[in-house]
Measured scan of single mutants.
Amino acid sequence: LVRYRTISKIPQITLNFVDLKGDPFLASPTSDREIIAPKIKERTHNVTEKVTQVLSLGADVLPEYKLQAPRIHRWTILHYSPFKAVWDWLILLLVIYTAVFTPYSAAFLLKETEEGPPATECGYACQPLAVVDLIVDIMFIVDILINFRTTYVNANEEVVSHPGRIAVHYFKGWFLIDMVAAIPFDLLIFGSGSEELIGLLKTARLLRLVRVARKLDRYSEYGAAVLFLLMCTFALIAHWLACIWYAIGNMEQPHMDSRIGWLHNLGDQIGKPYNSSGLGGPSIKDKYVTALYFTFSSLTSVGFGNVSPNTNSEKIFSICVMLIGSLMYASIFGNVSAIIQRLYSGTARYHTQMLRVREFIRFHQIPNPLRQRLEEYFQHAWSYTNGIDMNAVLKGFPECLQADICLHLNRSLLQHCKPFRGATKGCLRALAMKFKTTHAPPGDTLVHAGDLLTALYFISRGSIEILRGDVVVAILGKNDIFGEPLNLYARPGKSNGDVRALTYCDLHKIHR
């Protein structure tokens, strides 16, 4: 019993810090008490220290592992850092350059016999395009090294910054494609005289377009951006097909006994025919423009016929181009109408809503002055909100995010209106959640004399007048207030005048 009563005193000691020596009952000389009392004092002292730490809000209350900052290894790049964003855009520009100039170089340097010394005699450094290609190869190699040090988000939505895990993730992902696209074939085969082989191998750079397509997928929600990307894709495919079309004609031209190829026909049409040795002929500019003209006309199913396939190889390629053109029509131009419709969806919704308003007016036989006010209010409210119901949009977000959005939407009023000066951010967040926005066209009466005042109004834009009878008592403008002081009276009061809008007004109100 003594032991039980001794232990039962522990909660009292913990909360009230009572010393055991003052209790005459606990001072009985028993061996059990002498053993338990020192333990009680020690526990009391420890609990006292913990309570003191909690009340003082000291940093040592938290466990040590929670006080440590997340460790980022040296030379690790955050995937959302500004440097990584700028670097990704730079790589994107280099990939676009590669997609345009690599097929052009591979096709127009394929057994090209233009006048001038061969590239091997001039030297590697004197070729501007080769120098640019070398810079692109170096940048792609540097990009691989950067990807080995860039964080990523795993399946659990955690940012991984450990170098080993980053390397394994990159090896399992895009490393092989990036490595093949970054191989400097110019340096590996330079001086061997195989410019045709170098041009063909350099087309491996186009593998990076797969990554670019995935990154550009984030802009699919913007109709104008999608339309622009589709047109660029169409032009890029036409450019690639033009390079292939020229390569076919250029390879067949020296081996044909009869002059029936499209390059021969082009030379005869523009007065620059090929001679018996295969030299001469149109310039590279004429060849490229004509090839691009043929691919565009074939892809769009126009086909004027002034550039036509004559050999079997050219006919087979033309059939493939027609098939590609039909697929592009289905996948690209078939979506253009939907994209344009999405661009004008706001206008369509406006006309639909206006039609419903006019049908309501016609069905209920609203008189002319009231009908005009109804239409003007709808037009003004639509121009202010673009038909978007803010309350319906915010309803799907958590309250903390709703408060931040409301604070942002009402920031101008909260910053410049005098009653809100000096208020804490928590108070402003709470008030912003209570605001209701209303609009009024010129001549609209917001409050009639004798109406119950259940709200306090803040003028965000425009001006109003307060009338008693036919006498203008006051004219209020931006950041002015009218209405009933909230919670100042037990019952809502009545208006002693009319409140009429002089201009288009936007008002925020808080109800009782």
Rank of each mutant, 00 (worst) to 15 (best):
V357I: 08
Y65D: 07
L414A: 02
L94H: 03
R362L: 03
Q269N: 03
L227A: 05
T233D: 01
I189S: 13
Y80W: 04
F190I: 12
P369E: 09
G173Y: 05
Y97I: 01
K434A: 08
Y222I: 05
K202E: 01
T311G: 01
G334S: 03
R214K: 05
H169T: 05
R371E: 02
N368Y: 04
K395R: 13
Q372T: 13
I340C: 03
E64Q: 15
Y219N: 04
L209S: 13
F190C: 13
L110R: 15
L431N: 01
A99H: 01
E376W: 09
A330V: 02
S412T: 13
E314K: 01
T290L: 01
F397W: 08
L343S: 12
P103Q: 01
R74G: 12
N310P: 01
R165A: 14
A107N: 01
C417D: 06
L299G: 01
L227I: 14
T290D: 01
R429D: 01
D88H: 01
F175T: 01
A330R: 08
F294E: 01
G249T: 03
F101C: 07
W75S: 04
A204R: 14
F397K: 01
R358F: 01
L93V: 12
K418M: 08
L327K: 01
P441H: 09
L279C: 13
G426K: 03
R259E: 06
F397I: 06
E115P: 14
F108D: 01
A69T: 09
G116C: 05
I244C: 03
Y350V: 03
A125P: 09
I141F: 11
S326Y: 05
R362G: 03
G303N: 01
Q372D: 15
L409A: 06
V160R: 01
K66T: 05
I135V: 05
D186Q: 10
E157T: 11
G199R: 15
C400D: 04
L145N: 01
L145D: 01
V131K: 01
L188G: 11
I260G: 06
L187D: 12
L93C: 01
F228M: 13
S301K: 12
N154G: 13
F378D: 04
L67F: 15
I284L: 13
A430Q: 11
L229A: 05
V357A: 03
I91M: 02
L78N: 09
R373V: 04
T424F: 02
V100W: 01
S220K: 13
W240G: 01
P398A: 01
H162G: 09
A155M: 12
I324G: 08
A449I: 08
L201K: 01
V180Y: 01
I141P: 01
I332R: 03
L197E: 01
Y293D: 01
V447Q: 01
R71T: 10
L109I: 03
K215A: 04
G123R: 15
K84M: 01
A204M: 07
A338R: 04
L188W: 06
I198A: 05
D286L: 01
A440Y: 05
R259F: 01
M328C: 13
S337V: 05
W245S: 01
C232I: 04
V100M: 01
M390R: 07
E195N: 07
P441G: 09
V132T: 03
L176D: 01
L78C: 04
P367S: 04
H239C: 01
F234K: 04
A242F: 01
H439L: 06
Q402Y: 03
H169K: 09
